[in-house]
Structure formats: C-alpha cells, structure tokens
Design a protein around this nucleic acid. Structure first.
Lengths: 195, 195
DNA sequence: AGACTTATCTACCGCTTGGTAGAAATCTCT
DNA sequence: AGAGATTTCTACCAAGCGGTAGATAAGTCT
C-alpha cells in the first residue's frame, strides 16, 4: 500500500536522535543544521517527515515522555504513596544523569526564552503543571485511602515533590553525579511524608 | 578629569535594564536588538560601554547577585542555621516572583544551550556551585558550633537546600505564585533540619 | 510501459544574528 | 582657538537562521 518513493531513514530512530539534540541544547540552542547533522538527513527530508522545528520538538517531547521520562507515569501506578514518590525520585535521578544527556528536557528545553520560543516555553510549563496535577491526584487518592495522614494537603505535597524533582534537574544540568543526587532523594524520602 | 565627549546615558541604569532583559529571556533568547531597545542606546554605544554580549551578561550577572539576588549572601550572615535557611528560602520566593521577572537568572540564564553560549552556561553552573559551597561552609560551621546536630552531613544539607531553591526557581519560571511558593518554603522549614 | 505518488537533493530565499568602520559631535586641556 | 580624547550616529558586514522551490530518483499501481 506504500505509494511513492520509500523513505530511506527510520523515522523513529531519527526522532530519537533529534530528541537527544534538543535535550542537550534546548529548543533555542538547537539549530536545524544541528538536527539534520545528527539525524543524518537533509533539511527537506526533515521538514517533509516532521514539519517545522516546533512540530519536531513537540514530537521529540512526546517521545521523551514515553521513553526516558516514562519513570514518571510508571511511578504513579505504584500501590502506595511512598512507593510512588520513591520510584519517581530515583527514576528521575537515573534519567537525568544519563551520560551525554544531563538534566530534564521538560525543564531545560525552554525554561525562559525569546519571543520565537514562547509557545514552546508555555507548552513545557503546561506539561510540568500537568505532571504535578497527576501527582496531586495520586496523592489525594492516597490520603483518601488512609495511605497518607488525613489532613495532609495533596497540593502542597505535590508541589514539594515537584520542586525536589526540578531541583534534581537543575543540579543534574550543572553536572551533579548520580551518587550525589541519590543522596538527595534519600534525604527527601527519610523525611517522607513531610509534615 | 573626564576627557572626551561625556556619556549621555547612565551606565548603571542601562545595566539594570539589560539585566532585566537577560532575566526574562535568558542569554540565548536575548538579542543585541532587544538590549539596545530596552536600554535606549545604540549598538556602538553598548559595545563601547560594556564590551560584547558575553561581557555585558557577566556584568548584568554581577549586578543581579549584588541586587535582586542579594538575599543569598545576606542570609548566610544570619546567626543560626535555621535563620540562614529561612532567610534564603523566603528571600528566594520574593525575588523569584518579582512581577515581570519570574524565576532566577542564575538558573534560567543558560541552563542548557548551543555552543555559542557554552561558556556562559558554565559560568552560571560555577556560580551555583559556589553558592552551594558557601552554604555548605556556613552549615558546617553551624554543625561545629552545635547549632545543628553533630553527625549531620553539611554537603548533603547544602545540596538539599540548593535543590529546593532551584525547584522554587523552576516553579516561579512556570508562573507559580508567591503564596504557593511560600507554602513550599514553609514545608521545607517545618522539616528542618531534615534527618 | 507509463502514470502517479512520494522522498531526496542542490540551491536558494529573506531575515536576523553579533559585531564594526568611519565620520561627526561634544567635551577638556593648553 | 585649537589639539586631543571620547561618544554618538548611520550604515554596513559576513555568517547563520528557519524554511522552501524545483528538478530528479525510486518506488507502486493499472
């Protein structure tokens, strides 16, 4: 059923390569030339397969969330609040200290930027907010189930865990080792749940 | 003693304006045109007074550390570890929710970037590391003085506070309110010192 | 074989980027 | 008044940006 000349490259593999460039350099710091070089295709091929730079970034972001960032949604499935937070924190440490790709795409992809990247910045902020909301809902369930002390504020707790995660992301971007960050996660978990 | 034609603009005021542009847009997201427009001077005047873009950013960063970011060094002077952390956390919340300039220049100025901004990224990472080191030294003193439990690891503690601060920075960049962030600081302080 | 569809390539587009040359203007000093 | 120092301005530069036109190649369909 495939009409026309067949594509000579693997779309998913190319998208992975693009993802890693965006991850390392951020949206603004990545040029189309960076992408085509890393992906091993020419610009017209890139545009035909993925649309423009913004489209490509969104597709790479989706892939990130499902791939390297998958620890987050996986963590939310854990049976207890403690296991949820544990899985997410340690998962984040591992993902964000991946050699060659330090940090978190959702944080450093476009934390702040010029006008041209404004919509990407907002998309990332919205995704972070959505992640926090998902965690909120999961913790609210834990409170309802008696898994966490009643009277706990799920919103405050979710924001606290998010802040720790984002702190880990910034530290990782600055070159912190996985050992150092694991000790950070350990400390947060020794004090879990915070009062 | 002033030879030559006198400068027609106030260097410090112009530097302040440049600082705010870098703060909002980051190093890469800021163009020379953005700067000259905000500062109300032409490009040759800018280059004559501040050097190139990188020089200007460094000067703006110095001004940031002494001005809006001054809460940090001020906090380190407080008499007890608790007051130090309290001052730094609440100071960060206030500084990073400054209307029109959300977030922290040292975090979002260049968390990740293309090759052209690499040295700025490293400079910012080094400054964050230096800040963490200063806090480490202050907390180590507190441990030595019996102000914090002996056996506490100053490095772990400093990294923990840094992570919270950087979490606040990311949340602020994403639009979190000062009320929300204050509750975050409250929670961290209720659990201080973490075991 | 020939029509059709799609991918690939080279070459290019207009625009913005950081940065500067060179002349004119405005001050101080003698 | 004139020399010297410095700032200011307009106009410009090469290089890089994101994005595309148009021809050609490589498949599938009838």
């Amino acid at each position: 059923m495939a009409l026309g000349r067949p594509r000579e490259f693997d779309v998913d593999a190319a998208l992975d390569l693009a993802l890693h460039v965006f991850w390392r350099k951020g949206y603004e710091g990545t040029s189309m030339a960076d992408l085509t070089e890393a992906m091993g295709i020419t610009k017209p091929s890139l545009y035909a397969a993925f649309g423009n730079k913004e489209d490509l970034f969104r597709k790479a972001l989706d892939r990130y969330v499902d791939g390297p960032g998958g620890y987050y949604q996986a963590g939310l499935q854990k049976p207890t609040a403690r296991e949820v937070v544990e899985h997410i924190l340690y998962g984040a440490v591992d993902a964000m200290t991946d050699p060659g790709n330090p940090g978190c795409l959702a944080v450093q992809g476009a934390l702040c930027c010029g006008e041209a990247a404004e919509t990407i910045k907002q998309e990332l902020a919205a995704r972070r907010a959505k992640g926090e909301q998902d965690l909120h809902d999961r913790l609210a369930r834990a409170i309802a189930e008696g898994d966490l002390p009643s009277g706990t504020d799920a919103g405050d707790l979710a924001r606290y865990v998010s802040a720790i995660l984002q702190g880990i992301a910034v530290q990782a971007a600055g070159g912190a080792s996985s050992d150092q960050l694991r000790k950070l996660a350990d400390m947060a978990l020794r004090n879990w749940p915070p009062v």
